[in-house]
């Protein structure tokens, strides 16, 4: 199975783990992630104001490239997934944005949101299947109590993201189960980590992180996983280090037995 892959800037720099483990695991599962040849930064935040067109163009370029490639577009970073999905939705549903963007980009074939954007987790669930994933697990993560941290960007606004039940999601829990570990369900897993406001006010971000980690711990979580580099940063930076936080792909890599299976580990 072939997919276009959009890593995004953070996965090329601070979140190389997320990217590396993701690619290696996908390859081990027989999935080819073909990185788009000339991708640009998606913009990191979805431009809410309807009259913002220019800030959506780089996302549209990536979406178009995947369309021309004839494959769905796989993302890993929550923020990229959020931006690409919503901009794609705009191109499908908002005639004004579609017209202006096409007028500016002048593609050979106008773009109207034809690309299917899927998150890596959806790839595992819908294309591979968690049951099959379970079969592929060589080193089940037995006995580990893992809390899924979803954050905001994958889930909301649910009408546009269509990712999971926005208030009681379970895709990462199902993923954790498939890897042989025990998912810990806690209510704050879909509350905000503080996002980029951490640049303005560390205290504000810390307040959010405190609530999340306290709640996860109260339910017995011994570690957390996330798909978002910014969530990862906040969750790590604003605690004392007693709650380990990992990327979803690292957990997958481990469960697939790739760490000791001879695959080159990241240096």
């Amino acid at each position: 199975m072939n997919y276009s892959y959009y890593p995004g800037c953070t996965l090329k720099t601070k979140a190389q783990d997320l990217d590396f483990y993701g690619r290696e695991s996908a390859a081990a599962l027989g999935i080819t992630l073909e990185e788009l040849p000339e991708w640009q930064c998606c913009g990191a935040v979805y431009p809410i104001a309807r009259d913002e067109i220019a800030t959506k163009l780089s996302a549209i370029r990536a979406l178009m490239a995947a369309r021309d490639n004839g494959t769905p577009l796989v993302t890993l970073c929550s923020a990229c997934h959020h931006v690409l999905t919503r901009v794609n939705g705009d191109m499908q549903r908002n005639a004004d944005i579609r017209m202006k963007a096409n007028n500016y980009l002048k593609p050979a074939v106008p773009y109207a949101g034809e690309t299917r954007v899927i998150h890596y987790l959806q790839l595992l669930r819908d294309e591979i299947g968690f049951d099959n994933l379970k079969q592929a697990v060589k080193k089940p993560l037995k006995g580990r109590k893992i809390g899924a941290y979803y954050g905001c960007l994958l889930l909301r606004p649910s009408k546009e993201m269509q990712f999971d039940d926005p208030e009681n999601p379970h895709i990462i829990e199902d993923f954790i189960k498939a890897l042989g570990a025990e998912p810990v369900v806690y209510a704050m897993r879909n509350e905000c980590c503080g996002g980029y406001v951490t640049l303005k006010s560390e205290a504000q971000a810390k307040e959010n992180v405190d609530l999340i980690i306290k709640n996860a711990r109260a339910h017995g979580a011994e570690e957390l996983i996330t798909a978002c580099p910014l969530c990862m940063y906040n969750l790590r930076a604003h605690q004392d280090g007693s709650m380990p936080v990992r990327y979803i792909t690292e957990l997958l890599y481990e469960a697939l037995g790739l760490r000791e299976g001879g695959a080159a580990d990241e240096t």
Binding site: Y186, A187, M188, E191, K214, N215, A218, H219
Partner: peptide
């Protein structure tokens, strides 16, 4: 105690 407003989130802890 009647409180004019709504609840945004409920969570369980300890």
């Amino acid at each position: 105690d009647y409180i004019k407003g709504q609840v945004g989130k409920v969570w369980e802890e300890d």
